[in-house]
Amino acid sequence: MKVIFLKDVKGKGKKGEIKNVADGYARNFLFKQGLAIEATPANLKELE
């Protein structure tokens, strides 16, 4: 799953980066902790 990092995550990505991560990792950790959001077309447009 592609995500947009909202904060730096050690060993995974830095704020503003778009990366592929495991679905479970994204849903169970990154999204719940507010560290990333899903890289949907709408979210990508907001990032620009």
Rank of each mutant, 00 (worst) to 15 (best):
G24P: 11
K19R: 10
I37W: 07
F5R: 00
K19A: 10
E46K: 11
A36E: 00
G24Y: 14
V9T: 03
V9N: 02
G34K: 09
N20T: 15
T40R: 05
F31Q: 02
N43V: 12
R27G: 03
K45E: 11
K10T: 13
R27Y: 13
Y25A: 06
G24S: 15
L30W: 02
I18M: 06
L44H: 06
G34Q: 08
K10G: 08
K15N: 03
N43W: 05
F5H: 01
Y25P: 08
L44Q: 05
E17K: 03
N28I: 08
K32H: 09
G11I: 02
V3N: 00
A26M: 08
K32A: 13
E46N: 11
I18Y: 03
L44E: 05
G16V: 00
D23N: 11
G16Y: 08
E48L: 13
Y25V: 07
E48R: 07
I18D: 01
G34Y: 08
G34P: 00
D23G: 12
N20D: 13
K10Y: 12
L6E: 01
G13Y: 13
P41K: 10
V21H: 01
A22I: 09
E17I: 02
G34M: 08
Y25F: 10
L6K: 03
F5T: 01
E17N: 05
A26E: 12
V21M: 09
K2V: 14
K32T: 12
V21Y: 05
K19V: 13
P41V: 12
K15R: 12
L6N: 01
G13P: 00
G34S: 06
E17V: 03
L35I: 06
G11K: 05
G11E: 05
G24Q: 13
E17D: 10
V3S: 00
A36G: 05
G13V: 06
K45P: 06
T40E: 04
L47R: 08
N43K: 07
V21P: 00
N43M: 11
I4G: 00
K45N: 09
F5Y: 07
K32Y: 06
G11W: 08
D8Q: 03
V21Q: 03
G16N: 07
V21G: 00
E46L: 14
N20Q: 14
Y25T: 06
K45T: 10
A26I: 09
F5G: 00
A36I: 08
L30Q: 00
V21T: 03
E17A: 06
A39F: 11
G13E: 01
K32P: 15
Q33S: 07
G34D: 06
G13H: 12
D23V: 15
G11L: 04
A36L: 01
Q33I: 08
K45F: 12
G16S: 04
G34V: 03
A36M: 00
E46F: 14
K45G: 09
R27E: 09
I37E: 05
L6T: 05
V3D: 01
A42V: 08
M1A: 05
N28L: 11
K15Y: 05
I37G: 01
I18P: 00
L35W: 10
A36Q: 00
K15W: 03
K45Y: 11
K45H: 10
K7E: 09
E48K: 10
A39Y: 13
L35S: 04
K19F: 06
L30I: 01
K2W: 15
L47T: 07
F29G: 04
I4R: 04
L30T: 00
L30K: 01
K10E: 15
K14R: 13
L35H: 04
F5L: 07
Y25S: 05
K15L: 09
A26V: 10
I18T: 05
L44R: 07
F31Y: 05
T40K: 05
P41F: 11
V9I: 08
A39D: 02
N28P: 01
L44A: 05
L6W: 02
D8P: 05
Q33T: 09
K10F: 13
E17R: 02
V3A: 02
K19Y: 07
A22L: 11
K2F: 14
K14G: 06
G24H: 13
Q33D: 07
V21A: 02
N28F: 11
I4H: 02
K2D: 11
G13W: 13
Q33A: 11
E48Y: 13
R27N: 07
F5K: 00
K15H: 05
A42F: 10
I4V: 09
I4P: 00
K19Q: 07
L6G: 00
M1L: 14
A42R: 09
D8S: 09
M1K: 05
F29Y: 14
K45Q: 13
L6Q: 03
V3T: 01
T40S: 09
V3E: 01
K32G: 08
G24D: 15
E48S: 11
K12G: 14
T40D: 06
N28W: 10
E38G: 03
A22E: 13
K7T: 11
L30M: 03
F31R: 01
N20F: 15
K7I: 10
A26K: 03
E48T: 13
G24N: 14
K2P: 09
M1D: 04
I4M: 08
M1Y: 08
Y25W: 09
T40M: 05
E48G: 15
E38D: 04
A26T: 09
N20I: 15
A22R: 12
F31D: 02
Q33F: 15
F5W: 03
G13N: 02
K7M: 11
E46A: 14
I4S: 01
G16R: 02
K12E: 14
N20K: 14
A22K: 12
T40Y: 05
G11R: 05
E17H: 04
D8N: 12
E46H: 13
A42I: 10
Q33G: 07
D23L: 14
A36K: 00
A39R: 01
N43D: 06
I18F: 04
I18H: 03
L47N: 09
L35F: 10
A26D: 07
K2G: 06
K45D: 09
T40N: 08
G34N: 09
L6P: 00
A22M: 10
N28V: 07
D23K: 13
L47K: 06
R27F: 12
K19H: 08
K32D: 09
A26H: 04
E48Q: 14
I37Y: 04
G24F: 13
L6I: 11
G13A: 11
L47P: 05
D23R: 13
A39S: 04
K12F: 15
P41Q: 11
F31W: 02
K14F: 13
T40W: 04
A26W: 11
P41R: 08
G24W: 15
E48D: 11
N28S: 10
K10P: 15
E38M: 10
F29V: 15
A42L: 11
D8H: 08
I37F: 03
A36R: 00
N43R: 07
I37T: 06
E48I: 14
L30A: 01
K12A: 15
K10W: 15
L35A: 05
I37K: 06
A39L: 07
G11A: 05
L6F: 02
I18G: 01
E17Q: 10
V9P: 01
A39V: 08
M1P: 04
N28A: 10
E46Y: 11
K19P: 00
F29S: 07
I4Y: 09
K2L: 15
T40F: 05
K32V: 14
P41W: 13
G16I: 00
K14H: 09
V9W: 04
V9D: 01
E46T: 12
V9Y: 04
L35E: 02
A42G: 11
L47Q: 10
G13I: 05
L47S: 08
E46M: 13
F5E: 01
D23P: 15
I37D: 02
I37A: 06
K32S: 10
N28T: 08
D23Q: 14
T40I: 06
K45L: 13
D23H: 14
L44G: 04
N43Q: 08
K15M: 10
Q33V: 10
F5A: 00
K10S: 09
V3Y: 00
G24A: 14
A42W: 07
K19W: 08
K15V: 09
V9S: 02
G16W: 09
G13Q: 02
K12Q: 15
F31S: 02
P41D: 13
E46V: 12
A39K: 02
K7N: 07
A36T: 00
I37L: 10
F29M: 08
G16Q: 02
N28K: 12
I18L: 06
E38Q: 10
K14Q: 11
K12T: 11
R27W: 11
A36F: 01
R27S: 08
K10I: 13
N43I: 14
L6Y: 01
P41A: 13
D8M: 04
L35T: 02
F29Q: 08
E48V: 13
D23A: 15
L44K: 05
N20S: 14
K14V: 09
V21N: 00
R27M: 12
K7P: 00
D8K: 04
M1N: 04
K10Q: 14
K45W: 09
E17W: 03
L47Y: 15
V3R: 00
K14T: 08
A39E: 03
A39Q: 02
R27Q: 11
I4W: 03
K15F: 06
K14A: 09
A22N: 13
K32W: 07
K7V: 14
G24K: 13
K32E: 11
K14I: 09
K10H: 12
G34F: 08
L35G: 01
K14S: 10
A22Q: 14
Q33Y: 15
A26Q: 07
N43G: 08
G16A: 02
K12S: 14
G34E: 05
T40G: 04
Y25Q: 06
F29I: 13
L44F: 08
V21K: 00
G13S: 04
A39I: 05
M1V: 14
E48A: 14
